[in-house]
Write a protein that binds this DNA or RNA. Sequence first.
DNA 1: ACAAATCATTACATTTTTATGACAAAAGTA
DNA 2: TACTTTTGTCATAAAAATGTAATGATTTGT
Lengths: 242, 242
Amino acid sequence: MAVTILVVEDEPAIQELIALNLKRAGHMVLCADSAQQAKSLINNVLPDLVLLDWMLPDLTGIEFARKLRQEERTKSIPIIMLTARIQENDKIAGLEAGADDYITKPFSPRELIARIKAVLRRRLPEMSDEIIELGGLRLDPTTHRVHVNNDVDPLKTAEVNLGPTEFRLLHYLMAYKERVHTRGQLLDRVWGDHVFIEDRTVDVHIRRLRKILESVGKENLVQTVRGTGYRFSVECSEESIG
Amino acid sequence: MAVTILVVEDEPAIQELIALNLKRAGHMVLCADSAQQAKSLINNVLPDLVLLDWMLPDLTGIEFARKLRQEERTKSIPIIMLTARIQENDKIAGLEAGADDYITKPFSPRELIARIKAVLRRRLPEMSDEIIELGGLRLDPTTHRVHVNNDVDPLKTAEVNLGPTEFRLLHYLMAYKERVHTRGQLLDRVWGDHVFIEDRTVDVHIRRLRKILESVGKENLVQTVRGTGYRFSVECSEESIG
DNA sequence: ACAAATCATTACATTTTTATGACAAAAGTA
DNA sequence: TACTTTTGTCATAAAAATGTAATGATTTGT
């Protein structure tokens, strides 16, 4: 589906150039000359990404970014900063305000598009509401329930009780089964992009998930891939000893 | 078949953005800056759906919607209102005028498209007047009564006394059983869209509902799903492993 | 075998979320 | 009007979940 991008840039020529390129890349574009105008636009439409010129005439770029990060509705919208030259101060301020990426002017349109793609890729995947049935587990997002198929009596299923994070983690792992995820990827996609949490914390949640799954006789579904991360797999990667 | 959508919105940027999104989604789009203009457009072409900004400059949005509902030719056209979060009276007026759905600004274009789809498919089976019998409860919307089946003597049923809000809440939960609803969804669906009520208030009403149900021996029907919301369920989520 | 790196596990303090009772405003009734 | 019911909010208690650090186990490379 179309991605809506808000461009906040006071220089008309640059604004137009950017807008043109974004449109050509298949995006919907909203333009604002100032933070002021950007705010009023955001009052009406929620963009999927904001391209923000840091050197706005009224110098309210930082404030604008911060405002976006504060409000519940907008706090997860990725922000890419456009700066003339990265001054140390800008960088710090930008980080504090929660920018996701920087682009230094002048930049090539191709670079811009590439960065945008990269940032958008990091968004939380919109997990569908489809029931996932895998490895003897059945996860239903709409009822928020996980059941284990009883191997003896297929009609009987036991419910598995998971905490919110364990549920999301399992959902994600099952949705992207058989694929290894680094701790960083899991943090980005299960916890959310703008969280600062120790990588090791993922271990603990994996542990909790495993513990619960073990208690219902599902042992080897969540596997460790040493040096990389974790994986949900139905294939048994154990007794492959030669 | 192409669906024709009339967009009534005075802000040019937003109008254009919406129009572009709709076009991209494969719809025919008609645009109007004012209720005035919309009326004359409708005289020529009959749209399949109307997107109506409630805050038109001439403040004739309400009147416009009402007019649509009055005239035979247009009275069954679904109306989606675009509203700012603040105006509370709008809700009443909107309901009276017969809007089918609301979208509160700021909204994401994705959300907009999704809602349009939903309305067009007549997705939401408006709460019917059918009697719902579930988990030992019998709820009759027409008589506005709830009965509990007596487990001992099936012929005897006790009546449960619920307040208006509790009744609607239970009705909704039973109509969409087994599914988790966030507090926001419940506020939208049971209280009405964009009402200014604290999320936590839902807790209190759930509490009241539970209290009443407990008093007639129905304990685990209304369940908490931590981190998400509530659910009406016949399956017991208790004796679960884990 | 040894040291380094990586992962597992446990315990615990903190934070977040939910439950519950009380209260006053609002709405409805007599 | 006086009285009852309903309803939204708050304060606080209770419960659950979460992140981190510390420690132990396992693997890996040399």
